[in-house]
Amino acid sequence: MDIRFLESFVTVADCGSIAEAARRLNLTPAALAQRLRSLEQDLGQALVTRVGRTVRPTASGLAVLAHARGLIEGARDLRAIAANDEPAGQLRLGATATSLTGLLPEIIARLNARFPKIEYFVRPSSSVELYHGVLAGELDAAVIVQPQFPVPKSAGWLVLRDEPLLLIAPEGMALDDPHAVIAQHPFIRYDRNQWGGQIVDRYLRQHALKVREWLELDALEAIAALVSRGLGVAILPDWAPPWPAGLRLAKKLLPAGERRQVGVLWSRSGPRAPAVQAFVDICADCAREDRTP
């Protein structure tokens, strides 16, 4: 059985569409349909059926799907094991929205140049979800905001960026008295369900600041865009560039505030350990260069 055909079936089941699955796999719909037919002939059962415009697994397909993900993962692990301690196989990574654009591209570019046998899967999500993904073994490593509690000994942690808090306001607004600005203007809050948002919340409470809150979001770029349009002010970490193009903002460093630390969390064991260590080493190199004046 060709493991690529099994991967194609899983992708179709996840997407509910041959056309969408084909786009994700960089195949033509005809080529993907041929893979499905070959897999069905190999197993002797129909695996998918059309329901309107969607494609759904049959009863046999659902039974296969329950085991297919483990088989695919096992095949990927075999590639890493067969590499005999050379970084290889699929590296399953997670990244928050800002690290996905500001940190991960440079890290992966360097890693790919040095270790071309490594393949990549990247899951974008919140720090909380990615943290649990690494501990559950769903991800090998993730670039996240540092949790406010110790990580378990089964995982490693390395700080990549130390980000101060910024008051951001529409361009042209005077920020000589940042606390007065925060109190007097509509406040757009960084979501308190996010670890970074909890840092902002602690700053407000520590300085006894009452805000005219009208919106709470977990997307830093969206908050900055709203402020740029004159819809309020906000406190955000000074995240890794690039920031969205065309923003018209005034910024003021809040030196007395807690800083948001962004780093890489990784699993210390598993068949992909050489690839994970290579990833961590590249992260460390990038962090050192970022701190160099």
Rank of each mutant, 00 (worst) to 15 (best):
W243G: 02
A287N: 11
Y131D: 08
I144A: 04
Y190R: 06
P241D: 01
G156K: 01
L135F: 06
P241K: 01
K153I: 02
P178R: 07
Q194F: 04
A183H: 00
P242V: 02
S154F: 01
Q90M: 12
A30I: 13
S38G: 10
L226I: 10
I107F: 03
A13Y: 05
R76L: 12
D285I: 14
D290H: 14
A219F: 02
R161Y: 12
Q261R: 15
L158G: 03
D191P: 00
L175T: 13
W195R: 08
Q206K: 12
W266M: 06
A141R: 00
Q45H: 14
M1E: 09
Q90N: 05
L93R: 10
R189I: 00
A46Y: 09
I168G: 04
L215T: 03
G133F: 11
G196W: 03
S38N: 15
C15W: 07
E119K: 06
C15L: 11
A287M: 08
Q146W: 05
L135S: 08
L71R: 14
L25F: 04
S269E: 15
E216P: 00
R110C: 01
P293A: 14
V143Y: 10
L103G: 00
D191M: 04
L265P: 06
W195G: 01
L265C: 09
A278W: 10
R212V: 02
R53C: 11
I282W: 01
D285K: 10
A225K: 13
E86Q: 14
A155T: 00
Q184S: 15
P105D: 03
A224G: 09
V64D: 03
Q41E: 15
G232F: 06
A75G: 05
K210C: 06
E289P: 08
A169R: 11
L249W: 11
F115A: 11
A224I: 01
A250R: 14
A88Y: 06
L139T: 04
V51C: 11
I3N: 08
R4E: 14
P271K: 10
A97V: 12
L111H: 07
N193H: 12
W157Q: 05
R161T: 12
F149E: 08
V48W: 04
Q261W: 11
Q146P: 02
E258W: 10
P147C: 08
A59C: 07
T292F: 14
D285G: 05
E106K: 07
A31E: 06
A208F: 05
L71K: 10
R23F: 08
Q206S: 12
P293G: 15
A75H: 13
I235R: 07
T96K: 05
P164V: 06
A273K: 13
Q206R: 15
C15P: 00
A219I: 09
G172D: 11
E86D: 13
R205W: 05
P150L: 03
T98V: 12
A278K: 07
L165W: 07
A224T: 06
A183T: 06
A180G: 08
S8M: 08
K117V: 00
R4A: 12
S228N: 10
R259S: 09
Q90P: 05
G232D: 08
R260A: 15
P186I: 07
G156I: 02
Q198T: 01
D290Q: 15
L78E: 14
I223H: 04
R192E: 13
A95R: 00
A169E: 09
